[in-house]
Design a protein around this nucleic acid. Structure first.
Lengths: 226, 226
DNA sequence: GTCTATAGCCTGATAGAC
DNA sequence: GTCTATCAGGCTATAGAC
């Protein structure tokens, strides 16, 4: 059984000054990335919970014990996948939001970018948003980007309220919960019922902007607000 | 369990043949129900995909091969769980809707009942709404109640439109998709983030009526409609 | 319909040689 | 860091006695 070790992040950063060590570290990171990529492939075929270290090793042409030089346990591998996925999600939101006008427009752009990313990396999205692996919970470090992500959404809600694009009540716990319900609804319906559709054509994802407008209409500006 | 006591009691009273066959069939159904119930327990602890026939047998105090007298394979067991869950969901919706005024009120009552049922039977709800078991797809028979369920919702949308509670545009493919997005959003967020909360207290489920009102406002009556 | 026994796989993880 | 060898267990499913 899984010993339920510390789900430590194992992308160990050695102090490494000399040049030879640098190259070795780079090779190590490449191998780690190959393991993560192969793991995603396996999960895509066998389900998130169906990940098998033996199968990963088999596909990489190495022996299972070698994997333990990079990840001390299966849980640690899940943790690394979670961390990478959460960071990518945060980056996608930030990048899309940064290119739009701050406030409501940034929120819409960021949301769409995150849904698109999730469609492209479905198993990772499952790992991030649901709880498909009993016994696995992300470590605080792996979860940190997700926290930051929520924080950024709240920020944009506040900006939108300050700009008079939404009623200030939208920038609240309730507003955040409502927004997350709408986005999760679009995403989970699409994934469960039509996982291979594109964002544009998906029966549910194509409702994204309609749903976001619905959110906006839930917090209409009151008389006298800008 | 108590099955043995019951068998002992009825053994002396049972008339010759016809009733004997009857009793045997009833016992068989009881065993099947016990298997299904135990399977739900195991899935609750180990995840939907973590269901193990050996573990079911262990908890029932029988040997694994005995299970094969009732279900020819593990997939067949999943299928039976799916069928039972889908039927219960349909029944819950129908019962709640029947007690309310047909149309919008019935839709609201039915929706709430289904979400409550899902909260009480979370693993079954996962099996019904997501795809947690790679390689398992419900058979047409097991899926039939789900089809009927969607049909009933569409019916109530039409009734609501006919009664002038919604714009007729709500009774469309798009309206159905939008409604399913909203309900799935509430449910999946609650399950993923606060699975142990009650319907009343859940950070997301308590938004249910707010979200349904939002749906209604997405299809406002036009001038001149009743 | 229950059981024992077992086939024929799979898994995660460790020890230790090279 | 790679390997072989192996532990110690898990699993689904089948065969056949009772």
């Amino acid at each position: 059984m899984m010993k339920d070790d510390e789900a430590a992040i194992t992308a160990g950063l050695a102090p490494a000054r000399p040049a030879g060590l640098d190259r070795r570290r780079r090779r190590r990171e490449e191998t780690i990335n190959e393991i993560l990529g192969t793991a995603v492939q396996v999960m895509t075929e066998e389900g998130v919970a169906g990940l098998s270290l033996s199968e990963v090793a088999r596909r990489m042409g190495i022996q299972p014990p070698s994997l333990y030089k990079y990840f001390p346990s299966k849980v640690a591998l899940y943790d690394a996948l979670f961390l990478r996925g959460a960071q990518e999600t945060l980056d996608a939101f930030s990048a899309a939001a940064a290119e739009a006008e701050p406030g409501w427009n940034a929120l819409v752009a960021g949301t769409e970018a995150v849904i698109r990313l999730g469609l492209d990396h479905q198993v990772v999205a499952e790992l991030l948003n649901w709880r498909p692996v009993p016994g696995f919970e992300p470590s605080p470090q792996a979860f940190a980007p997700s926290v930051e992500f929520v924080h950024k959404i709240a920020q944009q809600l506040e900006i939108a309220a300050a700009r008079g694009e939404l009623d200030p009540a939208a920038a609240s716990e309730e507003g955040l919960a409502l927004l997350s319900v709408l986005i999760a609804g679009v995403f989970s319906q699409q994934l469960a019922n039509e996982p291979h559709a594109t964002f544009q054509q998906g029966r549910y994802t194509r409702l994204t902007s309609r749903v976001l407008e619905l959110f906006r209409s839930a917090y209409p500006l009151k008389e006298g607000e800008q």
